[in-house]
Simulated assay, not measured.
Amino acid sequence: MSKYLLNKFLYTVDRDPSLVERYRSDPAGTVAWWESSLGVSLLNSHSGEATTWLRLEDAERAALVAHDYVQLFELGAHPFLTLTLFIAMFERDHAEPLAFQKEYAVRLAHFNLPYPDIAT
């Protein structure tokens, strides 16, 4: 798995409000664009170089496109990165304060310690 690249996607998208909106409205396009342009430039300082670790795994890409934070957690994405990004994207869709955070907790409640490895 390319957990580093997966977490780098979550981190960089979360820190740019325009990317948050782009990812919310066009997840497949945003993931493809980020992986082929921004992700490569953030992690590779030499132009013209390419390695297989600069690509997301199919399962990671599918979970990102589906906004499936439970699957992302299962794949080893850092839970704080998924939580902050998905709050930015979906908290506005809930009427009650902290409603999305509560939904996040409920959907991840079936996990027991030890949690999936989040080391990169």
Results as ranks from 00 to 15, higher is better:
Leu10Ala: 01
Leu10Lys: 01
Tyr11Gly: 01
Thr12Met: 08
Val13Ser: 04
Val13Ala: 09
Asp14Ala: 15
Arg15Ala: 03
Arg15Lys: 11
Arg15Trp: 02
Arg15Leu: 10
Asp16Ser: 06
Pro17Gly: 13
Pro17Asp: 15
Pro17Ser: 14
Pro17Cys: 07
Leu19Gln: 02
Leu19Trp: 04
Val20Arg: 07
Glu21Trp: 11
Arg24Pro: 02
Arg24Met: 02
Ser25Ala: 09
Ser25Phe: 04
Ser25Asn: 06
Asp26Lys: 00
Ala28Ser: 14
Ala28Glu: 15
Ala28His: 13
Ala28Leu: 12
Ala28Arg: 13
Gly29Ser: 15
Gly29Thr: 14
Thr30Phe: 09
Thr30Cys: 10
Val31Asp: 03
Val31Met: 14
Val31Thr: 12
Ala32Met: 12
Trp33Asn: 12
Trp33Tyr: 11
Trp33Val: 15
Trp34Met: 07
Trp34Gln: 08
Trp34Pro: 09
Ser36Glu: 15
Ser37Asp: 09
Ser37Cys: 09
Leu38Asn: 10
Leu38Arg: 15
Leu38Tyr: 05
Leu38Lys: 12
Gly39Met: 03
Val40Glu: 11
Ser41Pro: 08
Ser41Arg: 15
Leu42Ser: 10
Leu43Pro: 05
Leu43Gln: 11
Leu43Thr: 08
Asn44Tyr: 08
Asn44Asp: 08
Asn44Phe: 11
Ser45Val: 05
Ser45His: 13
His46Lys: 07
Ser47Lys: 06
Ser47Ile: 08
Gly48Tyr: 07
Gly48Pro: 12
Glu49Asn: 14
Glu49Gly: 13
Ala50Ser: 15
Ala50His: 14
Ala50Glu: 15
Thr51Gln: 13
Thr51Pro: 09
Leu54Val: 10
Leu54Asp: 13
Arg55Ala: 11
Arg55Gly: 07
Arg55Ser: 11
Leu56Pro: 07
Leu56Thr: 09
Leu56Gln: 08
Asp58Thr: 15
Asp58Gly: 06
Asp58Ile: 10
Asp58Leu: 11
Ala59Gly: 05
Arg61Glu: 01
Arg61Lys: 09
Ala63Val: 00
Leu64Val: 06
Val65Cys: 04
Val65Pro: 04
Val65Asn: 12
Ala66Ser: 08
Ala66Met: 10
His67Ala: 07
His67Met: 00
Asp68Cys: 12
Asp68Met: 11
Tyr69Asn: 03
Tyr69His: 06
Val70Ser: 00
Val70Pro: 03
Gln71Met: 06
Gln71Trp: 01
Leu72Val: 02
Leu72Gln: 00
Phe73Tyr: 01
Glu74Leu: 03
Glu74Lys: 09
Gly76Asp: 00
Ala77Ile: 02
His78Glu: 12
Pro79Asn: 10
Phe80Cys: 10
Phe80Gly: 09
Leu81Gly: 02
Leu81Phe: 09
Leu81Asn: 05
Leu81Ile: 04
Thr82Leu: 07
Thr82Val: 05
Leu83Thr: 00
Thr84Gly: 00
Thr84Pro: 00
Leu85Met: 04
Leu85Cys: 02
Leu85Tyr: 00
Phe86Ile: 03
Phe86Ala: 01
Met89Pro: 03
Phe90Gly: 00
Arg92Tyr: 03
Arg92Ser: 13
Arg92Asn: 10
Arg92Gly: 13
Asp93Cys: 07
Pro97Val: 03
Pro97Met: 15
Leu98Cys: 07
Leu98Asn: 12
Phe100Glu: 00
Phe100Ile: 04
Phe100His: 00
Gln101Ala: 02
Lys102Arg: 15
Ala105His: 02
Val106Glu: 10
Arg107Leu: 12
Arg107Ile: 07
